[in-house]
Lab assay of single mutants.
Amino acid sequence: MATGGRRGAAAAPLLVAVAALLLGAAGHLYPGEVCPGMDIRNNLTRLHELENCSVIEGHLQILLMFKTRPEDFRDLSFPKLIMITDYLLLFRVYGLESLKDLFPNLTVIRGSRLFFNYALVIFEMVHLKELGLYNLMNITRGSVRIEKNNELCYLATIDWSRILDSVEDNYIVLNKDDNEECGDICPGTAKGKTNCPATVINGQFVERCWTHSHCQKVCPTICKSHGCTAEGLCCHSECLGNCSQPDDPTKCVACRNFYLDGRCVETCPPPYYHFQDWRCVNFSFCQDLHHKCKNSRRQGCHQYVIHNNKCIPECPSGYTMNSSNLLCTPCLGPCPKVCHLLEGEKTIDSVTSAQELRGCTVINGSLIINIRGGNNLAAELEANLGLIEEISGYLKIRRSYALVSLSFFRKLRLIRGETLEIGNYSFYALDNQNLRQLWDWSKHNLTITQGKLFFHYNPKLCLSEIHKMEEVSGTKGRQERNDIALKTNGDQASCENELLKFSYIRTSFDKI
């Protein structure tokens, strides 16, 4: 039985969820670079991206490699990797027998973001014989899940209580170790020597080791999670996991709180800001991140802002960003909400898709409305799209047979046209069989910064309504002859009103 693990408890099935942008060198404390989270699957090609990484700022997932063999891993080693800020997950990587050479110096898994409450997941690794993470000293947050690894031993010899604050939620089941077939031998045991430290858990006094050649490092209890030197002297209180010299914040392997210019500090002093819960960055760093993602459509890219001495992905609820200094300031009234469309555009074809934009005031991208039916549609669209004030790209209304009016965009005031449909149009209306009105132009103002209007096959939309939009939106004169079809717009509506004058002759039985 794995020490510190839980057996036999019912657990939810383990679901495996399925960018080499360097964020800056980590400095003297770390020998390499800070790398983003990685999802490495199918083959070993991307694994080489770990070569210079000291910190993975995010998670590391290595999974679904069915053609790899043990010899493929023999020359692979990433000794610079010290810390993973989120979680480490391995799933069905064939041929991998140990992690001792792959990650010989991995010391800390912070667990800032977890995989279903777990910071370390080893699942269905069919050839893994031992973990071998002999320098792993601290899992700051989260638990361990090690399950269905039929060859995995050296679990009962690990004292997880020396690595985690609590072992109650560890789930370590259905491994070879369960069948008591392992016969784990710690260093020196074969020669009758006791080389590794022994600890007591559940009444068992057991030597602690990761492999037959690597003991588990056990520091004096007084050192807590700070770690200790090879001689057993406690590291500085700002260290986490390990250090090369005692009581020196510049000799830590990793930091308990924050890293700044080669030393570990309790908090980031001005003019620095907390970033990702582990390091200090200056304003320029946060500003660069903001600008890199301002026009990016890459998933996970955030326009970072500053709030409460932190550089964070977005302002919290009730705050909006001051564009001059990136500071989050309290909103006066309802907060603006910028919604970034991942692929640059979004099609609204149902109430469900409209709900995804609920509360958005600025759309960074283009909207395509293609709704053919739905219950209580006008009210639903207004509830979900009615706060949109600005669209950076274009607005396209296409084959939306259920629409009679666009009044559900009740606050839309600006279409920038930074991206144009077919390279020309910022407003595009095609084949809307029941569209009769755009907006009530006596109450609604709309500016279209650039781009043209396109109207074709809107049989109940009168040309007068379209011409009014040209005047109000500032697009009059931009359109070419064929942009607004004269014969297919309003051709099934009563669009022309003329005053009919009647004269009559009164007659009676005795007068003409």
Rank of each mutant, 00 (worst) to 15 (best):
185 I>H: 07
319 Y>H: 09
121 V>H: 10
207 E>K: 15
296 S>E: 04
320 T>I: 13
164 L>M: 09
105 N>Y: 06
241 G>R: 11
53 C>D: 00
37 G>F: 03
208 R>Q: 15
174 L>W: 10
280 C>P: 05
194 T>D: 14
50 L>A: 06
248 D>L: 07
296 S>P: 08
70 P>F: 08
145 R>I: 08
307 H>S: 09
213 S>L: 12
72 D>A: 01
34 V>E: 05
184 D>T: 04
82 I>E: 07
88 L>T: 00
186 C>E: 04
253 V>Q: 03
187 P>D: 05
92 R>Q: 05
328 C>T: 01
146 I>A: 04
225 S>W: 11
134 Y>T: 08
238 E>K: 04
314 E>L: 08
187 P>S: 10
146 I>S: 02
63 L>N: 03
170 N>E: 05
180 E>A: 07
248 D>K: 04
225 S>P: 10
75 D>R: 05
274 H>G: 13
38 M>K: 07
320 T>V: 11
317 S>K: 13
239 C>Q: 01
180 E>D: 07
333 G>D: 13
177 D>I: 15
275 F>D: 01
139 I>N: 00
141 R>K: 04
285 F>W: 14
53 C>V: 03
190 A>S: 10
30 Y>P: 06
170 N>H: 08
306 I>C: 10
217 K>F: 14
323 S>K: 05
297 R>E: 10
296 S>D: 15
241 G>D: 02
210 W>I: 13
39 D>E: 14
255 C>K: 00
178 D>W: 14
169 D>E: 15
207 E>P: 06
129 K>S: 08
322 N>G: 07
273 Y>V: 03
59 H>N: 08
285 F>Y: 03
153 C>H: 02
239 C>R: 00
250 T>N: 05
183 G>M: 04
304 Y>Q: 04
193 K>R: 08
232 G>M: 10
320 T>L: 06
175 N>D: 05
243 C>L: 00
206 V>L: 03
149 N>S: 10
329 T>I: 05
143 S>W: 12
142 G>M: 00
204 Q>D: 14
95 G>V: 02
286 C>I: 02
284 S>N: 05
295 N>P: 03
173 V>E: 12
88 L>A: 01
326 L>T: 05
235 C>T: 01
106 L>W: 02
335 C>H: 08
269 P>E: 01
302 H>A: 12
184 D>R: 12
276 Q>R: 11
138 N>D: 08
202 N>F: 04
188 G>I: 14
65 M>V: 03
187 P>R: 06
75 D>H: 06
271 P>Y: 07
95 G>S: 08
214 H>Q: 15
255 C>D: 00
116 F>S: 09
329 T>M: 12
273 Y>K: 07
228 C>F: 02
82 I>M: 05
218 V>P: 08
86 D>H: 15
295 N>K: 15
200 V>G: 02
86 D>Q: 14
171 Y>G: 15
60 L>S: 00
103 F>Y: 02
234 C>I: 02
163 I>N: 01
210 W>F: 12
243 C>V: 00
333 G>F: 06
180 E>V: 06
215 C>L: 06
224 K>Q: 12
100 K>A: 07
46 R>L: 03
48 H>R: 05
336 P>F: 03
142 G>T: 00
57 E>G: 04
206 V>S: 13
231 E>F: 15
293 C>Q: 02
308 N>V: 08
277 D>A: 14
155 L>Y: 09
336 P>T: 09
